[in-house]
Nucleic acid binder design. Sequence first.
RNA 1: GCCGAAGUGGCGGAACUGGCAGACGCGCCGGACUCAAAAUCCGGUGGGGCUCACCCCCCGUGUGGGUUCGAUUCCCACCUUCGGCACCA
Length: 833
Amino acid sequence: MDRYNPAQIEAKWQQVWKQQGSFTIPNPEVAEAAEPSRKSYVLEMLPYPSGTLHMGHVKNYTMGDVLARFRARNGLTVFHPMGYDAFGLPAENAAIKTGAHPADLTRINTDNINQQLHRLGVSIDWSRELATSDPEYYKWTQYFFLKFFERGLAYRGEAPVNWCPSCATVLANEQVIQGNCERCATAVEPRSLAQWFFRITDYAERLLHDFDLLKSWPERVITMQRNWIGRSGGAEVVFRVAELDLDVPVFTTRPDTLFGATFFLLAPEHDLVQKLVEGTGYENPVRDCVASARLKPLQDRAVAEREKTGEFTGRYAINPANNEPIPIYVSDYVLMEYGTGAIMAVPAHDQRDFEFAVKFDIEVRQVVAMPGAEAGAGAMTSAFEGDGVMINSGRFDGMPNREAGRAIIEWLSSEHLGRAAVSYRLRDWLISRQRYWGAPIPIVYCDRCGTVPVPEAELPVVLPEVKDYAPRGRSPIAASEDFVNTACPACGGGARRETDTMDTFVDSSWYFLRYTDPHNDREPFDRAIVNYWMPVDQYIGGVEHAILHLMYARFFTKVLYDIGMVGFKEPFTNLFTQGMIYYKGAKMSKSKGNVVNPDEHVEKFGADTLRLYILFMGPPELDVEWQDQGIEGSFRFLGRVWRFVNEVIEKTEALTAGAPEPEGASREMSGLLGKTHRTIARVSAGISERFRFNTAISAVMELVNEAYLVKESLLGDEEGRAVLRFVAETVVSLLDPFTPHLCAELWQRLGHKDIWRQPWPQPDERRLQETTYELVVQVNGKVRDRLQMHASASKEELAAAARSSRRIAGYTEGKQIVKEIIVPGRLVNFVVK
RNA sequence: GCCGAAGUGGCGGAACUGGCAGACGCGCCGGACUCAAAAUCCGGUGGGGCUCACCCCCCGUGUGGGUUCGAUUCCCACCUUCGGCACCA
């Protein structure tokens, strides 16, 4: 018998798969007529080609591959493509350092990753490979920008934005983590700049509503998105500034507390601040307050524990509930970005307002009584934010506060003083970046015609060559005169091109659609084809994309649905988020120097061993710790499989397919046969139902262990050899999704071909049940004996057997059995007194 | 502070709808094979106690309560770790 030599075997089969294009799946001839219930789109998040694949990628792509291979062998037409999220800062930053072109660096990296993926043996349809930085791809990214622009979903606006000084570009809200840049952790600065946005807020309600269409999305991902969108129901209420004849709307979630509003607040950035304070004598302190708020870094401003500051404007607003004038202040705890940038302050029922009122000595008027407490008794020491009965609120007194809120909205509406309203935390998606390596925004500015979209026929707007990639607060392509100066598409006169590029999250918001029709040069994809393959049946990736990528892709899909380009509202029906791999107690990272390189392990043990180990480590959704010696166990196991199967091949004869039905079966023989069928059932369920790859693998290990123990005795006669042959073939067949190279080789040696195309084994229902089992006998819940019982034994038989146990007698002697609990197949429990 | 997930041997982890806690693997200990080693194969391995002949007893799934014949599993309170959000009116 030759030794298990993964290097040789893996190279051999990778070559076969590549030459035969074994996993290439053509589009259906007539997509409209194709039966979608037989297809399965298995997708892993595409890699960002910043260098080479790390362990997280290996886990991601191995999981996807196990699923793809398993589903293919279960008769589904599996769609399993791969590409590269190739635009982005790492390549550009490397270009700045080395002077090499980002496109060249990207090509080197994608080639690298392509090879790594081949060496892992993943069953990818390589004919659909794409890179988002190819003009053939980003042409369509630009096309979608134009479609968004046409519909008013892409707009340019001046707004306070997050500027990362290190990356020298603006960032979307979603890319700011605790006030720091998501990429480089530099503190972001507020700036006011004209930028391009996608109107994702228009889709806030549908993004929330369509969670219903998602199956098996992790609850926490949905919760994170829900919190991010941050829907609040309440009311818009208009406060009047009589002296200036101004109406200022506020948003509140607590219309029930309207009678308790004793002051009014504006955000420092609010348009009306200047107008209000003019001529009151309070100009200077207010101006200082506004200026200092503008300078304050965003993360400092967002600290709840900070002491409240603010300035009186010298003006009063009328509370529409009781027509009382209340003072107007400016304070930086009011955010311009949320609601209307102005609030009614109710110190009795909002802790922040309470703190402000205490500091500025403003009346605290309670309008919701605390249940149990005497109404209005004594001074409050903090705001009461709970529910209760209305007081001090005119004709609403005595109502439960929630009900009063609805009544007050109704009354406000009838008086045209307000209405029911909804507010979202979500803000529009800022997509322009002042950097080079991205898709140019296809817009031209003309002095006469204004902002003009580039006509579709002129796409792509190709990223120009530049000499210097360094960012200087504007995109490096702004320095390219040939690029910037152009003719206006509308009037033909001189005009300038937009020089910002798009956020790379735009690129990855639709790549899964392009896979379905990747070489189409007339349109981004064919409608019938995309509707056949989509939606993705199983998406797999890291939880770090819970908000960013997954929300943007959902938004994009909904817009395309509205345009009529796709026939589905959600892109990813099922989502699985994998846990991270830790090493030495921390996330792997270059800076910590605790990176485990997959290539080294592929070289040392082979890809099959690495694939097996990474799934055997633990439940795939949890974070797990890499153990250096753990992988050797997986290698040893594959060696054990190798020796077992080869020995069986040597000592038994090839048989016609099918499970053996030995007649003169020994106990070992039928025991092993039953175990084999149970293993088939366990592995099938483990893969298909709950991604329980770790226990599926351990089930096969158990089977192999048992086969080793009875092997010698079974080799002695013909029926025993038939059983062993069946066991060997089953083990190979079940392991194939996990360790495809080894299994392809052993399958061939067993005299068959192309295991990746063979039907998945089915268990024999009749052999799943064991004929005997160990009955646990308890006295007062403690295990006191175990008895071998026949599977068909009745309750009465079980009780009788348990009672006649000598051991049990020792515990029940002289006592009274008050209760017998009999669970067939498990236990008998005597309760004694 | 709020929301969510998780706490099980020396380690990674198993345990279906409440029913034998510790499957499987790592590590460790012992044996076989060998001139020897590696590899391989076989056995043992939660803690404590015992007239430790492996028979048996007690304890044990973060902590403290509860429900139940029976709880890693269900309920209540708390502790710890990790993730998300955090002046959002």
